[in-house]
Structure formats: C-alpha cells, structure tokens
Amino acid sequence: MTATAEAPSTTRRGRTGKGSVPVSPWPQVNLLPPEVRASRAVRVVKRWLAVVVVIAIVIAAGVVAASVLAQRGADQELADAQVRTEQLNAEKEKYAEVPIVLAAIDDTTRARVLGTSTEVLWTPYLRAVAATTPEGVSIDTFSVSAPWPRPDLSMAQNPLAADSVGTISFTARSLTVPDSAAWLDGLVTVPGFSDPWLSGATWTEPTPEGMPGYYAVTGTVEVTEGAWAQRFVDETEEN
C-alpha cells in the first residue's frame, strides 16, 4: 500500500471556506508557444477591425442614402420649377400683344402731346379781338401765322415786338375814324396777346353798287405762350 501525501488546501487569504478561490500552491508555467499567443492577439485585432469596417460601411451607406434622397429632392424641385416655367410661358403667350399695345398707346399719347403742344383755341381769341373793337368797327378778315410744334419761338411780324409763338393779322372796317388807342389798350388786356399794332385808317370810297364808304384798318397782335391750351400736358407727366 502506497501512501500519498496530500498537500493542504489553502485559499488566497490563507483560509478555506465558502466563497474562497482555491490557489494552487504549485508553480505554474505557460507552455503555449508564442505563435499561439500572437495568433490569438491577431484574431482580437481582426475582430475590432471588422467592427470598425462595419461601422464605416454603415456610416458611408447613411451618407450615400442621404445624398440620394437630397438628389431626388433637388430633381423633384427642378421638375416642378420646369413645369411652372412652362405654365408661365404659356400664360405669357396669351398676353404677348399687351406690351406692343401699351407701347403703341404711349407713342400715340406722346404724338398727341407733341402735335398739340402749340395748340391755341382760336374761337375765344377771335371773339376777344372782336370784343375789343371800338363801336362801329367790324372784322373783315382774320388770319393766324404760327410755327409747327417745336420749342423755339418764331420771329414776330412786327419788327418792334418781342419774339412770339404766333401772329394774328386782321382787317377791319369802320364808318368813322376808329379810336386806335382804346383799341390797342383793349387788345393788350387779352391773356396771351402782346404788342398789338394798327395801321392808319385808309378811306375807301363808296361803290357804284351802293356800298357806303368806310375806313379800312389792318392790324396785328402777337401771340405768346400763354395762349397755348396745353390740354394734354398732364398725360405726358403721368407717363
């Protein structure tokens, strides 16, 4: 019979009991080759590398997905904008003639303003000339000399008068010698008139047909810018 010696069982803290971790009292030696340990370390590194690669792939996939969604959104916005542009162009075609009509109206308005820039409403002035005549004087002829519409002034027919925009010439007859001074004073009071002038009264003999004799008088009066009607000036200012 062989006797076997048992080594006393000890714990990490030198005592036995429940919850104690047994520690071998004999020396331990790791007999694994270095290649095995290195292989295990490499496998751990590979695992972590695989985790990192998976995370990178997931992130890249998320970025690509976000880019694809953004591109789709941009494409949709572009398509909507193109459709809207086509709709606007179709609406524009409906009103293509509007700018042409507006330009024609504007040209017509400007032409009317230019054409009437030197317009004078002559009927009131004819009546004014007749109203200033002395008693017993009647107007035989009445003529007006005025330039075409332009900004410069015309030379008055009366060499002693200032430049004007037109000249009224008239002839009159009177059974008596007319009061020229009173007549001239009356013409000066008419707005838009200046520098009235009367020739001397010339006696005209009675005619065999029974027409009585009379004094013939010729005269002129200069028309100033104050006589212009300017009816359409406001339209130019509004444009």
Score class of each variant (00 low, 15 high):
T2S: 08
T2Y: 12
T2Q: 06
A5F: 15
E6W: 09
A7E: 07
A7P: 07
P8R: 07
S9N: 09
G14K: 02
R15N: 06
K18V: 09
S20D: 07
P22Y: 14
V23C: 05
P25S: 14
P25K: 09
W26H: 14
P27L: 09
V29S: 11
V29H: 15
P34G: 03
E35M: 11
V36L: 11
R37F: 14
S39R: 14
R40Q: 13
R43N: 05
V45H: 03
K46H: 10
W48F: 13
V51M: 05
V52P: 02
V53E: 12
V54D: 02
I57Q: 06
V58F: 03
V58S: 06
V63R: 11
V64E: 11
V64Y: 10
A65T: 05
A65V: 05
A66L: 14
S67P: 03
V68A: 10
L69S: 10
A70N: 10
R72S: 01
R72E: 00
G73N: 11
G73S: 12
E77C: 04
L78V: 05
A79W: 02
A81Y: 02
A81Q: 07
Q82R: 09
Q82A: 07
V83A: 15
R84Q: 03
E86F: 04
E91G: 04
E93D: 14
Y95T: 15
V98E: 12
V98A: 13
I100V: 15
V101R: 10
V101Q: 15
V101N: 07
L102R: 13
A103D: 08
A104G: 06
A104Q: 15
I105E: 13
D106H: 12
D106A: 15
D107W: 10
T109P: 04
V113C: 03
S117I: 03
T118R: 14
E119G: 07
V120P: 01
A128S: 13
A130Y: 10
A130S: 15
A130C: 08
A131G: 13
A131V: 08
V137P: 00
S138R: 11
S138V: 15
V144K: 11
S145C: 08
P149K: 08
P149T: 09
P149R: 10
P151Q: 08
D152F: 08
D152W: 10
D152V: 14
Q157K: 11
Q157V: 14
Q157R: 13
N158M: 09
L160I: 12
A161T: 09
A162W: 09
D163A: 11
V165C: 07
I168E: 01
S169G: 11
F170H: 00
F170M: 04
T171R: 05
A172D: 00
A172E: 00
T176M: 05
T176Y: 14
V177L: 11
S180L: 08
A181G: 03
A182E: 05
W183C: 00
L184N: 06
D185W: 05
L187W: 03
V188N: 06
G192V: 00
F193G: 00
S194E: 08
D195Q: 06
P196H: 03
L198M: 01
S199L: 03
W203A: 04
T204S: 12
T204Q: 15
E205Q: 10
E205W: 04
G210F: 00
Y214K: 01
V223W: 00
V223M: 02
T224M: 01
E225T: 13
E225V: 14
G226S: 07
A227K: 00
W228D: 00
W228P: 01
Q230K: 10
E237H: 07
E238L: 11
E238R: 15
E238W: 09
